[in-house]
Design a binder for these strands. Structure first.
Lengths: 340, 340
DNA sequence: AGAGCCTTCCAAAGCGCTTTGGCTTTTCTG
DNA sequence: CAGAAAAGCCAAAGCGCTTTGGAAGGCTCT
């Protein structure tokens, strides 16, 4: 059942039927009712391919998925997706993932924009001066960055959490508990979130006249194994830290294992705070010693980004609107006063 | 730059240019070269929306993403996606995720098929007599099931791993090591993979004249917490098992924690084998006691499914071709002879 | 009553591609 | 060398929708 048939069946022109269905004012309410009714009865649904060609609108949002043999997609992605899906489902938005060589995403961005394959895109895990942000900004497609970039001479819309504030608060708590040697096991410090977290820790230390030792901060891909290794290295050194801030729950698993392997205890010998993006399958309260966390639901962020993208597509939101969410500091058993 | 302009510029008809570009035989090789050359020079790329409308082909594969407040997307999904992306990238295939109410995916399947929004779909985590499989089968869109369904009167194409064989081998090993009381901590037993794994364990036990006690098998959502709870329940019972087979690495984290909380040891008091889908961020060899696993890369499966879907789209593969991958049994420190 | 204005509808022109059917021109074949 | 076949190209008709530019008819106003 296509428009032509429906129009013929109603003894109306395609124009009128189309307008009736799309809510244009220049059609009699009575007629509109008739049309809508017939459309529903016959299960008419406009062919999206045709609509696309005519309007350029696709009803899809895009994401360029960096891939490659050496590239691992972040497990956070799935949670983000859940949130995005929650919103998108209710609005009949689809998400198209365009896999790209991690080292050449530009080509793919250009393609999906030139081809008008999607109405909007989002960018995740941005780095400072991230080229993707600059690119989509000039390409002129609606977009939102999940996270933040830095160092541009233009503003852009983003949704980020207060990573600096979160780690500032975490560090401040540890300092107040008497810790003097803090360490930070961070994610890849080419990404902005990691830069911000380190900044937060440094600021808290500085406020008490301390600094973060060069070898007390490390930046690694966030795997359990890397958490373990970093912790071993930290704790086996002569000036071992008494408190660790850690950028992910998965790395925290490794931290806990390392501490145990060394015959030390949490929080007796070392306090631990990790960032929690809220996974349904791994919860900080279930760690052998319940883990203190800075918590922010990445799923909610996904839903919010979908919502804002939809708003941008329909013109309800514009400009470089930014949004920074506060992060909860949830204190559990893994922190205590510094050992004597 | 569209076809019309390009054709005009070459003083050829759109027909000829189109055919030249799409490799049709009825065009002079010399002409073809000229056309291809000009197309490249001017960066001409056919508008996919137009092509879609004309051909019905989209260059996209689809996945209906079950969503909902109570629905958590499986973290395995991301690894599967990595593999899919690896292949899709090289073939300029995009993946469109259509979020659907988890309780009503049928509507969405019907929509994407009726609208010809994708060229093929895949289905994951199938249950026995899965309605989605029956549906896409009748809808007539190319598809592949990742995993297996059961109980149909028709065949369908799938890619699965030998879950039954894997758990059969795992159980057999434990039995040979003298274990008499095995337990299985399984995933959601409405899904086929879980059914098969249980079948594998039972078969191994039966071969030695044993059975799987009713309270020695449990079926839960695969989270760390559920692994913990199940293990506590098992080990605190009077006829506690001396060996556990576990359906996921994440649950195994909980198993390990529970064993430790009870003051028991792996493998001294209880042996453990878990299934490993191969996550980059959590590796069995890094467990405090290196974990024995049944191993199969879900990422490779993703790549293979993309490959087969592409083959189906282009007509190279057809019929109910099935593929079952063997699973490695990797023995590490977490298994030992049964305690006396 | 005529001008001017809404209201309501329509024919037709796109959107940019593929594909059908046909028309020349060249190449073979007996 | 005539006739048939093949090669190479083209005009035009879709694909199914939106949107432009009217047009017809009814209404108000002076």
């Amino acid at each position: 059942m296509n428009l032509k048939q429906l129009a013929h069946m109603l003894a109306l022109s395609q124009t009128t039927v189309s307008r009736a269905l799309n809510g244009y004012p220049e059609v009699n309410e009575e007629t509109r009712r008739r049309v809508m009714d017939a459309a529903k009865r016959h299960g008419y649904r406009p062919n999206p391919s045709a609509r696309r060609l005519a309007t350029g609108k696709t009803g899809m949002i895009g994401y360029v998925l960096p891939t490659g043999a050496a590239v691992d997609i972040d497990p956070h992605f799935v949670e983000f997706l859940s949130g995005l899906g929650d919103y998108a489902r209710a609005h009949e938005l689809d998400l198209v993932l365009s896999p790209a060589d991690a080292d050449d995403q530009e080509t793919t961005y250009r393609r999906i924009v030139a081809n008008r394959q999607v109405d909007a895109v989002y960018i995740s895990s941005p780095k400072p001066e991230d080229r993707r942000v600059a690119l989509v900004n000039t390409l002129g497609i609606p977009f939102i960055v999940h996270g933040r970039s830095e160092g541009f001479d233009f503003d852009y819309p983003y949704l980020d959490i207060d990573n600096e504030g979160a780690f500032h608060e975490a560090a401040r708590l540890l300092i107040q508990l008497g810790h003097r040697r803090l360490a930070l096991i961070n994610g890849d410090d080419r990404e902005t979130f990691a830069v911000h977290r380190e900044r937060g820790v440094r600021r808290a230390l500085a406020a008490s006249g301390m600094t973060l030792g060069e070898h007390h901060v490390c930046s690694v891909v966030m795997t359990e194994e890397n958490g373990y290794r970093a912790t071993r290295r930290l704790l086996e050194a002569s000036d071992a830290p008494t408190a660790i801030a850690c950028s992910s729950l998965i790395m925290a698993l490794g931290v806990v294992r390392a501490v145990r392997d060394l015959g030390l205890a949490i929080p007796g010998d070392v306090s631990l705070i990790a960032h929690d993006d809220v996974f349904p399958w791994l919860r900080p309260e279930n760690f052998s010693v319940p883990l203190s966390t800075t918590r922010s639901s990445i799923r909610l962020a996904g839903a919010r980004i979908a919502e804002r993208l939809a708003a941008r597509i329909s013109g309800l939101e514009e400009g470089a609107r930014s949004e920074v969410w506060p992060v909860d500091l949830v204190v559990r058993g893994s922190v205590a006063g510094a050992p004597a």
